[in-house]
Design a protein around this nucleic acid. Sequence first.
DNA 1: ATTCCACAGGAAGCGACGGCCC
DNA 2: GGGCCGTCGCTTCCTGTGGAAT
Length: 409
Amino acid sequence: MEGLFDNLLESKPVFKDKEVLRPSYTPSYLPHRRDQLNAIAIILVVALRGETPSNILVYGKTGTGKTACAKYVGRELTDVGASRGVPCNVAYINCEVVDTQYRVLAYLARQFDKDVPMTGWPTDHVYSQFIEALNAQAGSVIIILDELDKLVRKSGDDVLYNLSRINLELTNTRVSLIGISNDLKFTEYLDPRVRSSLAEEEIIFPPYDANQLRDILEERARLAFKEHALNPEVIPLCAALAAQEHGDARRALDLLRVSGEFAERVNADSVKEEHVRTAQMRIELNRVAEVVRTLPTQAKLVLYSIITLQQNGARSATTGEVNRVYETLCRQIELDVLTKRRITDLIMELDLLGIISTKVVSKGRYGRTKEISLSVPLDETFRVLLEDYRLEALDGTRFARRSVKESLF
DNA sequence: ATTCCACAGGAAGCGACGGCCC
DNA sequence: GGGCCGTCGCTTCCTGTGGAAT
């Protein structure tokens, strides 16, 4: 019987091991990062001699290898420590997800086998549980705080203050911190004492240029693809496209992987330029669609309002205009009307997600406002918005183009 | 030089919720 | 079940401000 999967299985795969191209994979060789790796290693090596390593702050844009390097050095340290009888524990926290003092402490305590609930305990209780867990350990503990700027922006620097003084309460163990941040300026928001303690050492990760990206891709492609599965122009193209996006290696690897998936899907025996082009387009579109789809209803309606104004021909809208359209639409579908202040925040969130871009401008006598413009494809986004049943009703009442103002006010 | 618009965006706090402890 | 605690989405109240108009 001709099975559903038979055809698909018969196609000649271009991949040898696709996992190598995923962001979760930590490579065993990191091209163009020898200086940074050495710098971190030199600081951490004292842990093996029973001393406390300095705290480190690592800066660099997304996809410059910060996380990979930190994890890599951490793993090496743990291994070498184990073989020399000096235990070194490394805890990794992504502060984008774990973004409050309570959650950080709870997460850490859990790493050391304490049972801590999601919420419910007073924070200082979680703190003392963590101390207790640490005192049961020996040797060094390295805590990697990834996306640290997100945590600080949201919850302030209390966590860092407590963590940076934690050694005072420990008897057997020594704790060192590695903070990782995209944002060079985030230490400005820190208490000076916290800043000086946290940034005893600073390491900068510059973005990769196209040539360096090519080396990285070639390195991984060797593991990921079968021989001759890549046309010669593919890697340079991926590298060049990603270099335009401020040298983001993650994007480059993603692009290469999706290109391969496309080639496989159309049963090509090798990856070609056209597959890369398709992949590039598809990645961006998928990203946007996914983000928009998972927006809360109110945020969707704000975005809908911005799009409505843009459909009307406005190059950019102001906060006030968006607000007025939003309120009208809101009443139309009987949604609770949120305050202007809240809308300001929702607009900011859309900006942060890269769906719109905003700029504060002063119109002198006529006030100060934000110019808001859509930075994603209008029609695609609009379609995704209409998938929401609560917004669906608005489609019928599509305002006559060119006359939104009159039909609304 | 001063005024003043139309907002930006900080601070505080509220109420609901989920979840702890006793 | 009652008293707390942390978190989230939101409101209320507020101070701050760039620059055209006066």
